[in-house]
Write a protein that binds this DNA or RNA. Structure first.
Lengths: 244, 244
DNA sequence: CTGTTTATCGTCAGGCAGACGACTAAGATC
DNA sequence: GATCTTAGTCGTCTGCCTGACGATAAACAG
């Protein structure tokens, strides 16, 4: 390997940051970790870390995900690249380019703190984004670095992507009911959907849902059919997000 | 600034690569430059270059775009981040992470070669992607590095994005006719569209087109009304791409 | 047994898209 | 100048999908 002339380009640190979303208690929640060291010590941030010398970006994201949550991308969770953030001032220590990834996961057991994070928590995205301000003492209260912006971009990606893809099933356990899937849409979009029209729509879209034959009453009320995610990745026609 | 421990992370080179698309002669074309130095000397590649120490990723992309084409992003062209490619083996010299950007531009004068590129050309994307194979001598004939993949991702992004956004107007001159806009869709999607239904659709979508009052016969036939792009960024309902 | 909750099936009207007919207005050709 | 060719523009009709409901079914709680 004949390296470039080292003076020909500036050296960068490359990290991956994770926007891990799930639906719990009828709300869209994101994983955040408390920073144990400066800068932004004590503030909440997105999980993430350096990309190692021998791994691809998606491998680094999957590794960080496993380290922070124990979650494996194969295990029903969905992982995709979100966007890359490289403002020269985004990290006060040095030039860091962060490749953000988006993870959609079913409701998980309590997260485990890992690495240099003192603790980790699930928080509703509305709370995390609304905290992007100042508290009574005038200190900034939002996420560290530019993570508020990254989270907002990830949430917007998730909101639009469940319109035209079957990704909403990534928020559900392996077997789920139509009502559970509807509550995912309602939590992510923050709207109420008509159960009858929703049922007609998702059961009529070929490849979206595959009935397993079983039923469950875990949501109360009349027993509901159980489904698994079908093979179709794209929904045609898409789900329509109601107007504001 | 207290830097990280340099042994705590591997150093990366960060580049921007550009997928510059335009519509000429009824075909979707991409800008490619011939490499003047190893590796892949003499092969075609996407334009791009190193991100400088003091510039943001989008600034670097805009700078490279101006250097390679003389195009300014304000001047009707559209620039957005596409995706980031960081396979450890993607550049044989060292670890390079490339933040690819997508540019949609109206039909331009002949590109000018710049930097270390011997020459530059517009080529139909079908040709560029079909060359991802081997020639009779067994040499690889496609784009250098992983640029074939990057180009394919950019083309797919453009194809899907003109469905639900007004981005197709970025391929048109400042004033254009409904027929010219239709030919953009036909070239990007590679399909034929019904002129009557297309006209009804685009003129009926509020915010998409603004009539200028003028007419033109530059396409022959009956004079056509001239329009400018309206303010709407998203089309609701979207344009429907015909089935395959 | 009655009320509550959730699931599921039907019905109906409005809107939009695909298919296609009809007409208009310019330049090109004979 | 009559006719042809090329686009552009306006209408019509039909089928599909969606939103807004009503109605029924099947569990559990009191």
């Amino acid at each position: 390997m004949s390296p470039y002339d080292p003076s020909a380009f500036p050296p960068f640190a490359v990290t991956v940051d994770l926007v891990v979303l799930t639906v719990r208690h009828h709300a869209l929640c994101a994983l955040s970790v408390r920073r144990g060291e400066p800068p932004f010590q004590g503030r909440w941030a997105l999980p993430g870390g350096f990309v190692r010398d021998d791994e691809d970006l998606s491998q680094a994201a999957a590794r960080e995900l496993a380290e922070e949550t124990g979650l494996r991308a194969q295990n029903g969770a969905h992982l995709e690249q979100l966007a890359t953030y490289g403002d020269p001032q985004r990290d006060p220590r040095m030039r860091v380019v962060s490749v953000a990834h988006l993870v959609l996961a079913p409701d998980l057991p309590a997260p485990r703190a890992g690495g240099d994070a003192r603790s980790a928590r699930w928080a509703p995205v509305g709370t995390l984004l609304a905290e992007n301000g100042q508290d009574h003492a005038g200190d900034a209260t939002g996420l560290a670095f530019d993570h508020g912006r990254i989270l907002a971009d990830g949430v917007e990606r998730a909101r639009s992507k469940i319109e035209y893809s079957s990704l909403a099933t990534a928020f559900c356990p392996p077997e789920f009911t139509v009502g559970e899937l509807r509550r995912v849409y309602e939590a992510v979009w923050g709207v109420a959907l008509d159960p009858r029209n929703f049922h007609r729509k998702v059961t009529g879209t070929v490849g979206f849902l595959v009935p397993t034959g079983g039923t469950t009453t875990r949501q109360g009320g009349r027993p509901a059919q159980l489904f698994r995610a079908g093979g179709a990745a794209l929904l045609n026609p898409p789900m329509l997000r109601p107007e504001v």
